[in-house]
Design a protein around this nucleic acid. Structure first.
Lengths: 208, 208
DNA sequence: CTCTGATCGTGACGCGGCGTCAGATTCGAG
DNA sequence: CTCGAATCTGACGCCGCGTCACGATCAGAG
């Protein structure tokens, strides 16, 4: 029974990975229960059973844990986004696929661990800047540009377009979560309609 | 030279108002220079010359000062919004007026006291929930509903619509501030186009 | 003007969260 | 088994926060 070749071989590597996960899980719970503001680094640490010093071997602050959480979310969402891109056969199907995927994702995450916090609270899926988030932004902008190039839609300022699409999705998504019954489909219909109509009416980049 | 009848008559009232202003001004500067996160209640207090205790007679925390700042912004913006409503003679002119007003307002505030902070920073004009902010939201939603009723635009879910319009304006506005040269007109063209086209294509509330 | 209660200002103080670091412990290569 | 490096531990000092007992100032009554 020597050296069962798992992914992280050494014992050190294993506990390291486990601790990272443990901290992230604890943080999710704590932020969910106490909210970001009033949560304490020590609150998170307590749930992990680690010592204070050990925690600081992994993350330098509460903020950094929060970012890691957001980054994690973005990382899990990315494949869904990519799938939407690859499945799509035009501008509208891409937008629809991406938004429906996002709203379902949102609903899922919300169910799972967001123990009903007051609205307007800081949430990992919004307004934090992390590398993975930036990557998602770029991916969306490029996909939009790419799909526009194919002639399915008029060419407009891709940066503003991406910003607007994300803004609509984010805010409609958040509003959606507060409504009962939860209807991701209706919300998606709204967001997609807004974007599709909007693009058609937008000032063109190269008047031709 | 006795009792020149100013607006706040008593000396007490005067210094009270002066202190409130002083704190808000100091807070603007401090947040502008240090950023919200790393700014300290004491930093603000130091700039006012007040004592610690005196500060706490006016605001209970850094957060509360920040909200007061946001509230103040909303309060100054409201008349401009109202003017846009009263000047408008239809859906498009209202949307255009409101957005142009907002972007000009944004540009102004930015010039004045926002000593170029890293992007994504917490800013009083975004994502804070204050009574005055909520009032602005309601005003926009009602104005949109009202204008829709007049038949200038198809009727759609007013809540989602208001959320979407505000989201677009907010995010395009923020992006606009990062571009050189600063072009509020172009940004407004984009946002208005997006909204106008979007509304036309939206799922109707009462299919008729 | 004086007196008096009330309001407001002052700053030292205690509390609590933060991040560190010297020492202990555990791992794993040789 | 040995030893150096990686990791863990938790007591410690620091710093910002909000309070509160006390003093100063004001406004109104007499």
């Amino acid at each position: 029974m020597s050296q069962v070749a798992y992914l992280p071989v050494g014992k050190r590597e294993q506990t390291k990975a486990a601790n990272r996960r443990s901290i992230l899980d604890a943080a999710r719970e704590v932020f969910g229960e106490l909210g970001y503001e009033s949560a304490t680094v020590r609150d998170i640490i307590r749930r992990t059973g680690l010592s204070v010093g050990a925690f600081y071997n992994y993350y330098r602050s509460k903020e950094e844990v929060f970012e890691a959480l957001a980054d994690d979310g973005a990382r899990r969402f990315r494949p869904l986004l990519r799938a939407a891109y690859e499945t799509a056969d035009g501008f509208e199907t891409y937008v629809r696929g991406a938004i429906q995927a996002y709203f379902d994702f949102l609903a899922d995450e919300h169910e799972n661990w967001q123990a009903r916090r007051p609205a307007g609270e800081r949430q990992p899926h919004t307004h934090v800047q992390t590398p993975e988030m930036a990557a998602v932004f770029d991916e969306i902008r490029d996909a939009l540009a790419e799909v526009m190039e194919r002639g399915d839609a008029p060419r407009v300022d891709p940066d503003y377009l991406a910003v607007a699409c994300i803004a609509i999705s984010r805010e409609i998504g958040e509003r959606m979560l507060q409504r009962r019954p939860l209807d991701t489909r209706a919300a998606a219909d709204f967001a997609v309609g807004m974007i599709m109509g909007g693009v058609a009416a937008l000032p063109r980049l190269y008047a031709d």
